[in-house]
Design a protein around this nucleic acid. Structure first.
Lengths: 231, 231, 231, 231
DNA sequence: AATGAATGAGGCTTCATTCAT
DNA sequence: AATGAATGAAGCCTCATTCAT
């Protein structure tokens, strides 16, 4: 059980500034300092008020740039949103490290539980670091059709295949029940996002014992998926 | 196993029109037909575009009334939102039937599983009937502080106490593990809302086998909460 | 110096309720109690906010009648204003008693000073009793052309002639200087309205010694108009 | 009697355009030509219709700008009003030249009459040049509490002290009666504003002989305040 | 006579976007 | 590249007035 080298240690991926995040994964032109400030302000304002209620003038003000400057870099407000969300979606649902999972599937994690613990810890760290963008993502997915399409495509193309492969691997090993892999993903992700939502949006002021809640969630999922209920 | 006449059959509560829903639970003045049309249009537009992006003029147009008419009945756009959401919250998180659960706790449902199946089926029926308002609720909770406060209060005052009592009852009976009841609620609700979200918002066009997904979800939860993993 | 029977004692004229005032001077239809309440509320709201900023709905609300009721009695908001102002103008600038002045000019007041004291005290009592309508009058005169026309006409037809006669009488007696009577009126009225404005609008919270201020004002006017500057 | 180069000649102060007036007395940012046009139109419309009845759309139209442009420079309609009135109040009740009065009190004006003639002529010139804003001032003082407060403060801080000193000086010289200085100010200002109001608002179409009316007003005030009525 | 729901024109204000500097 | 003044469409809301009941 190699708990030590778990994914959450992947500082290179998750503890970067937002502007750094955006650089990854796409071939971006050089971004100026003003552009960075615009993006950061946009993230803040979108997360605070929602996309529709956010005003470009407030974004500009917080970024310390003129109103017109935003539109020099992003043709429309919607393009600004997309400039933020696309790299985030790539990162959020398709961590760079997932490839590693596939590659070293058998050797890296002995059990589905280890895999689960690794990925949940990792994604929670990510969510905590980029909470505002996650919030935007969850908020806007229902309204921004194009965004939703991209999200689903990314999920399909970059994640689902691999996840299914991983799940089937553990199913064959007898770690988990032979439910449809998509159902397993849904159940797992529900528990995870349910925690993120409760923890970060619904009652953030509560005193949460993250460590314990996560362990309980993992145990819950593992038992829920275990093949041997009455075996 | 599950009681036959399960709660989802409670047509009097859940299969009414939206305008009927609003009548329940509060002593409302008589609502005119135009008022009903305004409310229905508001629900539609809020659900389609989100509160902030919805315009009162579009709501009026769809309702076939003059824009001013909206403001004769609802002082502000926000009041219109609240007029919709408050009764929904009361109904959604605090079904009238929950009192029955408490009253006839022992006799009515033999097991936590039966209880779970009953309440999930019931709430899913409700969610399906009032999908748009559920969508609004999930969307606006992060931004409308007052709404969120009311939501949390209603949850606290009307549901949590009873749910905790029910859960502790089944825990004493040995049906489920002695986790903190709030954690159990979080896990259960996560699975439920995760399904609603996937089913109704994220990929609504998929062909879903509701019956099977629900059974799988219930089984997942039951196993996840069962005390006898390695007993 | 018959100070005793001065005009301010004319209770029949000045200390009536507003609704009573309106009855005088014009042949009005019977007014219902609701009409009275509408008029009184209109006076209040017009005086508080100004005609343009007053809303008929607030007037209705304060009067305790439905919005539509106002328009059953007064075709338009402007007609409501006029219904208030016309009788007031008649009373304010053309006191019923002025006829008496002319009739008994010589015998009633021995000097211009007595006349002045009588009329100022009288008009001040009136202004105090009907302050709100005076305020409306002063406010709307510049904007309501029709009102201004009527005001000037009433002043011309009912007052100026008589006032000029009175002033010329005292001028012939050598009481006051042979300035143009209109100039004398302007100077006198200025001092009077200047006091009303300071006293009732500009700094109403001040502690004013009315008795003394009035006496000083009268003395000021008398000296200002006295013929014997270098006599 | 009166000094020849009287204050009304102070062209640098009083005969500037309105936009010029606004520049004085405060350190203003540069104003664009459109801003000037907005201010001028606002003055016109406010004066014509009153603040409440003036519409920002008409102001914009007359200024030849888009309505939105107004709100780029003035956050609200009320701020637009204040932007106009504050400098005017400073100029109207607190002429720059009043300091000179104090400084050169004895030498500059031999008598209260000279002082009075100077200041009245000066203020009348000002009023004539800026008639619309004076009209707005007189109209809105009763309704705009904040404006009234500022007006009173400016009067207190900048004028009253000096005026009282001047009046007491002439009282000690025996020029005028020992009435309370505030009463003297009230009487004097009443006569002055009474003339302005009659002349410019009530019956502007009359043919007025300004020179003569002013001299008569001054004579009236002087006699009214003279100590030696029956000396 | 009285009501109050309904209207639609118009009010103030915000906003994304453009463009001359 | 950056600015910020300018725009005009659109947003929320108010209001005087009408009319069916």
């Amino acid at each position: 059980m190699n708990k030590n080298k778990d994914i959450s240690q992947d500082k290179h991926e998750d503890q970067l500034l937002f502007s750094e995040l955006l650089k990854l994964g796409t071939t971006q032109k050089k971004r100026t300092e003003k552009q960075d400030r615009i993006l950061q302000s946009a993230v803040d304002v979108f997360a605070e008020k929602g996309y529709a209620a956010a005003s470009t003038s407030e974004i500009a003000e917080r970024a310390g740039v003129a109103e017109g400057t935003i539109f020099r870099h992003y043709k429309t407000k919607k393009e600004l949103l997309h400039s933020i969300m696309v790299p985030v979606m790539l990162k959020f649902i398709a961590p760079a490290s997932i490839d590693d999972f596939v590659k070293v599937l058998e050797t890296k994690y002995e059990s589905y539980e280890d895999f689960l613990r690794a990925i949940i810890t990792n994604r929670l760290t990510f969510a905590r670091n980029y909470l505002p963008v996650i919030k935007i993502l969850l908020q806007e997915i229902p309204f921004q059709n194009e965004l939703r399409g991209q999200f689903i495509n990314i999920a399909k193309d970059k994640v689902m295949g691999k996840m299914v492969a991983i799940i089937e691997y553990y199913q064959q090993r007898g770690d988990i029940r032979p439910l449809p892999p998509l159902t397993i993903i849904r159940l797992t992700v529900s528990v995870f996002l349910g925690y993120v939502f409760s923890r970060l949006i619904l009652v953030p002021d509560n005193s949460w014992d993250d460590q314990q809640e996560i362990e309980q969630s993992i145990a819950f999922i593992m038992k829920g998926l275990s093949p041997n209920l009455d075996g």
